[in-house]
Design a protein around this nucleic acid. Structure first.
Length: 269
DNA sequence: ATAATAACCTGAGGGC
DNA sequence: TGCCCTCAGGTTATTA
């Protein structure tokens, strides 16, 4: 599923809709993570003012309010021509002018499409999120300070959207490997220097992945239907049992917080 | 208050 | 073929 780089790629991909009109919305399946507000099927002629991202949420700002879209584990937004028949998991179409439409597809339905009349950043799901990982407010000092009493594994901590947003399972694994920190370390055991190294690693990994258009494992495609190419750069994720590219020892794996975790016992301390 | 886990879904792949 | 199990880019609600 989409983590920050995939959501960022999607935002860039759908940004051509800015300035155009959403004539109406077709909802085939309203049962997502949260029900799609029924009012959306009554909406007519909204002008798209801006597309932005907060955490893993895509915000489509219009003259009447904002759509808040989360892609969950398997969601995707594609900007396509009208007339293509909808497949099984094509749950929502935003019908646009110029014979285009924005199609939301999500076979597991863990994503969501919500509506906010006012500033979407004040929405209950968005108002308590942590800092953006690529902003200055996410730095080593901050991470060190906020984690002094945290006893959970550091991997779980960096995936906690209240601590920092945008990091999911793939990039948590990759960032910890790059930082040389074991994912099973108790969070509060990290030194200031380690927090600084981890922040830098998270930022580096996310920036690189954005440049590659994200990671496509199964479902993810950008708005123009292209795959993300960061998969070829993954150092540990999905490589359990294979050899560490650095020390050539076998990569370990275990579940942390119900999520598959892969790391090198030699390179990560 | 914090931390572990159950739940929401569908589909693919492996073992038998 | 088919059944049963495990696994998958996330997040919230519930339980301990």
């Amino acid at each position: 599923m989409p983590e920050l780089p995939e959501v960022e790629t999607t935002c860039k991909g759908i940004s051509p809709i800015v300035g155009s009109k959403i004539k109406h919305i077709i909802i085939r399946q309203p049962k997502l993570r949260w029900p799609i507000p029924p009012a959306l099927s009554e909406f007519k002629n909204l002008i798209v003012k801006k597309v932005s991202r907060r955490a893993k949420y895509i915000l489509i700002h219009t003259d009447q309010g904002a759509f808040i879209i989360h892609l969950g584990m398997s969601g995707r937004l594609c900007l396509i021509k009208q007339g293509l028949t909808a497949a099984k998991h094509d749950h929502v179409d935003f019908i646009l002018t110029n014979n285009r439409l924005l199609r939301y597809t999500d076979h597991r339905r863990f994503g969501s499409i919500l509506w906010s009349d006012e500033d979407p950043l004040n929405h209950r799901l968005l108002c308590e999120l942590g800092p953006e990982p690529l902003s200055r407010s996410f730095n080593g000092q901050y991470l060190f300070k906020i984690t002094r009493t945290k006893k959970t594994a550091i991997k779980t901590t960096i995936m906690d959207q209240k601590i920092v947003v945008g990091v999911g399972n793939i990039y948590a694994n990759e960032a910890l490997y790059l930082a040389g920190i074991s994912p099973i370390r108790k969070t509060q055991s990290l030194s200031l220097e380690e927090c600084q190294a981890l922040v830098k690693a998270i930022q580096k990994i996310l920036k690189r992945a954005i440049l590659q258009g994200g990671t496509t494992l199964r479902d993810f495609l950008s708005a123009d239907g292209k795959r993300g190419y960061f998969k070829q750069k993954l150092q540990v994720y999905g490589r359990q049992g294979e050899l560490c590219f650095s020390c050539t020892k076998i990569l370990s794996s275990e579940k942390i917080g119900q999520r598959m975790t892969v790391y090198c016992r030699t390179c990560q301390k």
